[in-house]
């Protein structure tokens, strides 16, 4: 029985259940209603289920991006800015070149978004290897600068008139991703994100490229001694991480908001980072952790509508989860002992 409680999955579930329940009992006047709506809300009908899955699709990509940066032994703390840059480029270019709207243009726009975000993280990686500027700090700084500059373009050049939120015009209907589960907002973007994660996991696990990438990230000295150029892998890891965040921004515009909204990145950068950390050593676990995060968010979303809870309950639960999951002791004591 005690062994059962020590299983990682059970542990994570307990870590979600306990703080949530405590919080709800503390905060809500009708705890039972809040509790049921929090946990069962996302599954109550296709509408909520679809919305939950849709919100997880950009998260899948940011998690993968954060995961790849972590595996190349660097932290990408600039996810927020990179998602926002990807979204801004997609929305603004789509609106600006609306006259030439066709799939070729869309492809080009997406490519520009991916390259631009990749360049930003490449700069951080390059600064790290050339000048020893810690990429942890430079990614954050560049991201903050990017957010402000994007805000400038949205609010000063492309602001939608007569709207009560700071947003750009909607993109062309042609560009919107196909809805696959009406009446919910679930778009084909979810499938795209899922496929990208699966392919990346496969590459990491079963190819020589993935092998060299993992070894370089874990131990530069060993990699060098084995004739692997770990610096290239380190730089491309961070670059790829930026591009994936950019792609998440693209997906956010094409599949979720259909425009870019100031200050509305859904915390995708931070959530991606924590879900990647939660995924641990297996990249395919990203799918599970991203869905878990979306579930927590949709749960608190749903509970906000139906009961007197606030949406931040999920943030608190996530931070507790985040905290405990980074513990080395728990990994050693539980995971290693179970192997024995």
């Amino acid at each position: 029985m005690i062994r059962l409680f020590k299983h990682p999955v059970i542990l994570i579930l307990l870590l979600i259940l306990c703080p949530t329940t405590i919080l709800i009992f503390l905060l809500s006047n009708d705890p039972l209603l809040s509790l049921t709506s929090f946990f069962s809300g996302p599954f109550s009908n296709t509408y909520h289920l679809g919305n939950m899955l849709n919100s997880s699709s950009p998260l899948l990509l940011t998690s993968l991006g954060a995961y790849i940066a972590l595996k190349s032994n660097s932290f990408n703390l600039g996810g927020e800015g990179q998602v926002f840059l990807g979204a801004t480029i997609t929305a603004l270019l789509s609106v600006y070149f609306d006259r030439y709207a066709n799939y070729g243009t869309l492809g080009l726009i997406i490519l520009i978004a991916i390259i631009a975000t990749g360049l930003i993280t490449w700069l951080s990686a390059w600064l790290d290897s050339r000048y020893h500027v810690n990429s942890l700090i430079s990614t954050y700084l560049l991201s903050m600068a990017t957010i402000h500059i994007c805000n400038y373009f949205i609010t000063q050049k492309f602001l939608k008139e007569g709207s009560n939120i700071l947003a750009s015009d909607k993109i062309n209907d042609l560009y919107k991703l196909k809805n696959i589960l009406p009446p919910s907002t679930l778009s084909s973007g979810f499938v795209i994100a899922l496929v990208i994660v699966v392919i990346s996991s496969f590459i990491l696990k079963y190819t020589i490229l993935g092998y060299e990438f993992k070894i370089s990230g874990r131990n530069t000295k060993f990699a060098h001694s084995m004739g692997i150029n770990s610096n290239i892998y380190k730089i491309s890891g961070l670059t790829l991480s930026g591009s994936l965040h950019g792609l998440a921004g693209v997906l956010l515009v094409l599949g979720n908001h259909h425009a870019v909204i100031v200050g509305f990145s859904n915390n995708l950068g931070w959530n991606g980072l924590s879900s990647a950390l939660l995924a641990g050593s297996k990249s395919i676990m990203i799918i599970v952790t991203s869905l878990l995060y979306s579930y927590l968010d949709s749960g608190s979303n749903y509970a906000t509508i139906t009961s007197d809870l606030t949406i931040e309950v999920s943030t608190i639960v996530k931070s507790v989860l985040f905290f405990v999951i980074s513990s080395k002791i728990i990994k050693e004591q539980i995971i290693y002992r179970n192997k024995k």
Binding site: L23, L27, F75, L77, L136, W270, L273, S274, L277, T310, I311, E312, V313, S314, T315, I316, K318, S319, V320, F322, F323, V324, S326, S327, K328, I329, I330
Partner: peptide
């Protein structure tokens, strides 16, 4: 817990913002 201090720091940031909004609303 021998946790990575950067990760726990980020978690504290996240948790504080959640706590503030929740208590403020309450």
């Amino acid at each position: 817990l021998k946790a990575n201090s950067i990760i726990t720091g980020l978690a504290v940031n996240m948790g504080f913002f959640g706590l503030i909004s929740t208590i403020e609303f309450k």
